[in-house]
C-alpha cells in the first residue's frame, strides 16, 4: 500500500465516522441522543488528553484544570456579565491557552513520575481556587447558565443551543473539527517529531529538534483542546461546577484514552462512549442485583483502570492496530 492510498483510506475512515454520527442524530431515541451529544464533547476532552499522553508520551494527572479553565472561562462571563455563547467560548479557549502555556512552561521542566505529581498538584490548586472564589463560582453547587444566554447569533442566524438537535450538531461540529485537527497534526512533520520525542527524547534532540519547544507546543494544543471541550460543555449543558476540576476529571480522560487506545485518533471517542455506557449501565444493573447497597461508579472506574493496565495496555484500537490494521492512525 502506498502512502497516498493510506492517506486516502485514513481520511475516508474518519469522514465515515463523522457521517455516521451525523446520521445518528436522526435515528437515536431521545435518551441516547442526549448521551451521544455529551459523549462527543467529552471525547474532545479525551482527544486533547490523547495528544499529549498518546503521542508525546507525557502522562499528566492534571488535565481537569484545562477542562475547568474552558468551563469557567466560558461560564463565569456568561453568568456574571451576561455574555453570549460565542464570546464565552472564545474566553474559554483563551483561558485554556494561557493556563496550558504557563503550566507547560513549569511542569515540562520535570519528567516521568515528577511530571505526573506536579500536574496533579497544579490541577489541585485550580480545584481549590474554585472554592476560594466561591462567591463567584459557588463551589461544588456550581452555576447554572440561563437558557437565554446559551444562544449563538451570527450572520442573521439565531441558534438555540439548548434544543437537542442544535446541541447535538454543535457538539458534532466541535468533535469533527478537533478530530480533523488531531489527524492533521499526527500525520504532519510536527506529529512525527512528537512521536520521536515519546520514543527517544535524547535522540530527537540530537537530530536538531528543540524538544522542550515541541513538548510545550503539544501541551498548549492539548490544553486548549481540553478547554474547548470544557467551554462547549458549559454552553451546551448549562452547568459549571467544581467537580469538573476535581482529580476524578483528570483520571477519566486517561481512562477513556487507555480504553480506546492511546495514540490512536479514534480511540478517545470509542473509549469515552464505552466507558459512559459501562458506568451508566452497570449502575442500574448493580442496583437491580444488590438492592439497598451503596454502589457508585467508583468501583467500575477502578476495576477498568487496573484491568486495562494489566491486560490491555494498548487499548482497543491499539490492539486492533497491532494485530490487524497497521495503517490505523
Amino acid at each position: 500500500m502506498t502512502r497516498e492510498e493510506t492517506s486516502i483510506r485514513t481520511w475516508l475512515l474518519h469522514a465515515l465516522v463523522v457521517a455516521a454520527l451525523f446520521a445518528l442524530n436522526f435515528v437515536l431515541p431521545d435518551y441516547h441522543h442526549g448521551v451521544l451529544a455529551r459523549v462527543m464533547v467529552l471525547a474532545v476532552f479525551a482527544m486533547g488528553y490523547n495528544l499529549l499522553f498518546g503521542y508525546v508520551g507525557l502522562l499528566s494527572l492534571g488535565h481537569a484544570m484545562f477542562f475547568a479553565a474552558g468551563l469557567y472561562g466560558a461560564g463565569l462571563p456568561m453568568v456574571h456579565l451576561g455574555w453570549g455563547a460565542g464570546a464565552g467560548f472564545a474566553t474559554g479557549l483563551a483561558a485554556g491557552l494561557a493556563l496550558s502555556l504557563a503550566i507547560g512552561f513549569l511542569a515540562l521542566r520535570t519528567t516521568g513520575v515528577a511530571f505526573m505529581i506536579v500536574t496533579m498538584m497544579f490541577s489541585q490548586v485550580v480545584y481549590l481556587l474554585t472554592f476560594y472564589f466561591g462567591s463567584w463560582t459557588r463551589g461544588d453547587e456550581g452555576l447554572v447558565i440561563q437558557q437565554a444566554e446559551r444562544r449563538l447569533s451570527f450572520a442573521g442566524f439565531d441558534l438555540d443551543l439548548t434544543s437537542p438537535a442544535t446541541r447535538y450538531m454543535a457538539a458534532l461540529i466541535l468533535f469533527a473539527v478537533v478530530l480533523a485537527l488531531t489527524l492533521a497534526i499526527v500525520r504532519s512533520s510536527f506529529g512525527r517529531v512528537l512521536v520521536a520525542i515519546r520514543e527517544n527524547e535524547e535522540r530527537t534532540r540530537m537530530l536538531g529538534f528543540d524538544v522542550f519547544a515541541g513538548k510545550l507546543a503539544a501541551t498548549v494544543v492539548s490544553g486548549t483542546i481540553c478547554a474547548a471541550a470544557g467551554a462547549a460543555y458549559a454552553i451546551l449543558f448549562g452547568y459549571v461546577g467544581a467537580s469538573f476540576a476535581s482529580v476524578q476529571y483528570s483520571i477519566l480522560p486517561l481512562l477513556w484514552v487507555l480504553l480506546g487506545g492511546a495514540a490512536t485518533t479514534l480511540g478517545p471517542l470509542l473509549g469515552t462512549l464505552l466507558m459512559y455506557y459501562l458506568i451508566d449501565g452497570s449502575g442500574d444493573l448493580l442496583k437491580a442485583w444488590l438492592p439497598g447497597w451503596n454502589v457508585s461508579h467508583l468501583g467500575i472506574v477502578g476495576l477498568a483502570l487496573v484491568v486495562l493496565v494489566l491486560f490491555f495496555p494498548r487499548g482497543i484500537l491499539g490492539t486492533i492496530r497491532g494485530r490487524w490494521v497497521r495503517w490505523l492512525p
Partner: peptide, 26 residues
C-alpha cells in the same frame, strides 16, 4: 554538528523511512 550514538538509538517503532524523515524534515 551531527552525532551518531555509540549505542544504536534509532526509533524502533518508527519505520526506517520515518527515522530518516525526521532529520530530513529538519
Amino acid at each position: 554538528i551531527a552525532y551518531t550514538f555509540q549505542i544504536t538509538s534509532v526509533f524502533p517503532n518508527l519505520t526506517a523511512f520515518d527515522n530518516v524523515a525526521l532529520p530530513v524534515q529538519r
